[in-house]
Design a protein around this nucleic acid. Structure first.
Length: 155
DNA sequence: GCCAACGTTGGC
DNA sequence: GCCAACGTTGGC
């Protein structure tokens, strides 16, 4: 099993939205970055996802989810009405993919980006690197265990 | 709202 | 293939 971190703007799609979704499962559409797409294609059912809220008052990791379905074509790329429409996308040769993720649980507290930047263990995560905008990234077991350890720490 | 960082586009 | 212009991300 592998571990991942996925970013979402809570105004668009939050952990709460995932919790409320049918079957507490939702497809992760709209990824239009090749590196992020490639990572999604590496995901396997059962992999754990750290759910990160970006572009909000308190950016940070807010919960856990699991990969419920492996990568399949992102239909929103073919829909001209969709904000993530890609005119160069072709149904016969899908360019963009998505996975399904299932809600696992909310963390007891948000582990903020500011906090994550404090630790050497996490220094190599793209998330904490200056200027990095990757929205889907792998997390090592060591990093994942360390982050979940922070959950119990009092700020 | 600002703006740094980065990816993409397209002219040449 | 280069690179300037442009658009987007996302922290602050």
């Amino acid at each position: 099993m592998r571990y991942w971190l996925m970013k979402s703007e809570p105004d668009e799609f939050s952990l709460e939205d995932l919790k409320r979704a049918k079957g507490q499962t939702e497809h992760w559409d709209g990824v239009r970055n090749y590196q992020a797409r490639n990572y999604m294609r590496e995901m396997e059912k059962g992999d754990q996802v750290l759910f990160y809220h970006s572009n909000c008052a308190e950016p940070g990791i807010v919960g856990l989810a699991t990969v419920a379905r492996e990568a399949y074509p992102d239909h929103t790329a073919l829909d001209p009405e969709d904000p993530h429409y890609d005119p160069k996308s072709n149904p016969d040769k899908p360019r963009w993919f998505m996975v399904d993720v299932k809600y696992e649980r909310a963390l007891k507290r948000t582990i903020t980006l500011t906090e994550l930047k404090d630790y050497r263990t996490l220094k190599k995560m793209p998330l904490v690197r200056r200027g990095n905008r990757l929205s889907v990234m792998p997390v090592t077991k060591k990093q994942r265990d360390f982050i979940l350890g922070l959950e119990k720490k009092i700020r």
